[in-house]
Design a protein around this nucleic acid. Structure first.
Lengths: 82, 82
DNA sequence: ATGTGACTTGGAGTCCGTA
DNA sequence: TTACGGACTCCAAGTCACA
């Protein structure tokens, strides 16, 4: 029984953006400003409603102070127990 | 002076796709088939003419047998003089 | 401070060729 | 087998009004 990571890459990016943003103590609006994006766009990304391009991914990563690949990293395979 | 990776994420992905595709011994057409993409699209990606979405990035990675983050990994710092 | 639906514009992604 | 161009469809980018 492998763990089924059926989670799409969109879900992964969404979770990472939100998690890293909060870890950085930023509001969506502040992050939007840093990444030169619209406030509501950030909201949509975090809500898994956007299939972002790699250029936007790079901007997000830069604004969050991490490398782009960090945004694709799946959660540490822990439990889904929230 | 840190090494300046002014290379855009598009350049990085392009290089990685081409390199991994060749390493896998696939033609563009075969890779296109595996990733369920158009033949000419692969060509354009490798020539840095396309800004791919993360879903396509994931499909390419899967077709190449690697994780998506692998496609964003920059070349091992060997790039000094060509 | 965030969520959401609707909207326009530009580009992602496809298909046709030709070299 | 790949590069390259044109023409096409559809969706991502980017923004807004309002909850």
């Amino acid at each position: 029984m492998a763990k089924q990571d059926q989670a799409t890459i969109i879900d992964v990016v969404a979770a990472n953006v939100r998690q890293l943003r909060k870890a950085a103590g930023l509001s969506q609006e502040e992050l939007a400003h840093e990444a030169d994006l619209d406030r509501t766009y950030i909201s949509q990304v975090e809500r898994q409603q956007r299939n972002v391009t790699i250029t936007v991914l790079a901007r997000l990563a830069a604004a969050l102070g991490v490398g782009p690949e960090r945004l694709l990293a799946k959660p540490p395979a822990g439990r889904k127990r929230d």
